[in-house]
Simulated assay, not measured.
Amino acid sequence: MKLEPVSPIYFLALAVMLASVTGPGCSPETDRGEELLELYRSVEVTPELSMIIEEDEEIIFGQLGSLASDSRGHFFVGDNQLIHIKHFDRDGNLLETIGREGRGPGEFSRVTNMFVARDTLYAYDFDNARLGRFVRNESGDGMRFDHYLDIEMTDERIPRGVLKSQNHYVVESIDLQAYTGQIALLDREGNVLEPDLLTLPLPERVNVMYQGNSFPWTRPLPRRSHYRLTPDDHFYYGWNDSLVITKYDIRGEPINTIRFDVVPPRVTREDTRDLAERMPEEIWNTLRSHVPETRPAFTNFVVDENERVWVNLGNIEEDTDEDRWIILDQDSELVASFRLYPNMFVHYVRDGMLHGIKTGEDELRRVALYDARI
């Protein structure tokens, strides 16, 4: 498949559009909030830090990004600054470095997401709009480059990431003219089966003046789309103004909806101070009136192999800085809940182990695995 060139102006607009993090919501109800917290405590589990990988003389990280693992427990870590992928065994020992910066075979410009399917590693190169496939080498200890799959897009649609189930690929793209996110369905050879499988809303924008020019800017704490593709060809999607996550089949037909009554926390003065410090004063003077009263209902979710949905509600309790996570089954029943280190982005859950990238108080990112088996 051929890649049509994308104008640089779209990348500038995309960078501006994606530069921030929630939208309007209803005020929390105190009684209901206390009731939910009691419910959480009644089914709480205590996760344990099982592994953490940080820089040492052998392992040097630039900026950690994507994370994936195979059936052996080996995991792969994308480095957005050093432009390569590090391959670790299940004990956290560095086995090899995969790829380097470039446009040749096995090379990348920017890897935005990775995944493993049938012990084959796939890495999506955003700048070159292609999906790299890496298979085990003859010894079985390392990975070797196999081939690229080019992702066909137009000037109006910028591909952001690719996911794979057993039989299909789904491609997320941004349509800048319509200002929507689009999910397309591809077969195993990369042929487009459904160009508009799902249409996702994008965060609300506000026009701001900066240095004499008007720019569309994402409103503070915006609501966002979240989605996951599972190996068995199921697609989960939620818009985080409320905790409603819909399960679809691979053709975009709804199968089930998972709901949970969550009271989003109020935006605090400390939140607004943090927002103000992150942007030029000229822009903040416009955006300050668009700060919502509440945060989103959730910040992220993943789906495990038992089709349980693990949802990060964010920091919703006054007595802790940790994030509150809940686990829901397909009937929307609360299975368990727990607290977890706040700056931990969980990429996936396997056998009750949360795999993610943890940002410490020193602002450095580390690979972290937590055991939350129930």
Results as ranks from 00 to 15, higher is better:
Gly102Ile: 11
Leu328Gln: 03
Trp239Phe: 13
Asp323Gln: 09
Thr154Ser: 15
Arg160Leu: 15
Val303Met: 01
Arg133Tyr: 08
Phe301Asn: 03
Ile9Glu: 14
Ser225Cys: 11
Arg160Asn: 08
Lys358Asp: 11
Glu253Gln: 15
Val16Asp: 10
Val21Cys: 09
Phe235Asp: 00
Ser214Arg: 14
Gly106His: 00
Asn306Thr: 13
Leu221Tyr: 11
Arg266His: 00
Met344Pro: 00
Ser173Lys: 01
Gly352Ala: 04
Asp233Ala: 03
Glu55Cys: 04
Thr320Pro: 03
Thr97Asn: 14
Glu270Leu: 13
Ile174Val: 15
Arg295Pro: 00
Val77Asp: 00
Arg350Asn: 12
Ile316Thr: 10
Lys86Cys: 10
Leu64Gly: 01
Phe134Gly: 04
Gln81Lys: 15
Arg223Glu: 11
Ser7Lys: 14
Leu340Trp: 01
Arg100Trp: 07
Val303Lys: 01
Asp331Ile: 01
Pro220Leu: 01
Leu275Phe: 13
Pro8Tyr: 02
Phe298His: 04
Asp331Thr: 08
Thr230Cys: 09
Met1Thr: 10
Val267Gly: 02
Met143Gly: 02
Arg324Pro: 06
Leu185Gly: 07
Phe75Leu: 12
Phe338His: 09
His87Leu: 07
Pro195Ile: 08
Val77Ser: 07
Tyr236His: 04
Glu281Leu: 12
Ala15Ile: 10
Ala184Ile: 02
Glu29Tyr: 12
Leu163Tyr: 09
Tyr122Arg: 07
Leu67Val: 07
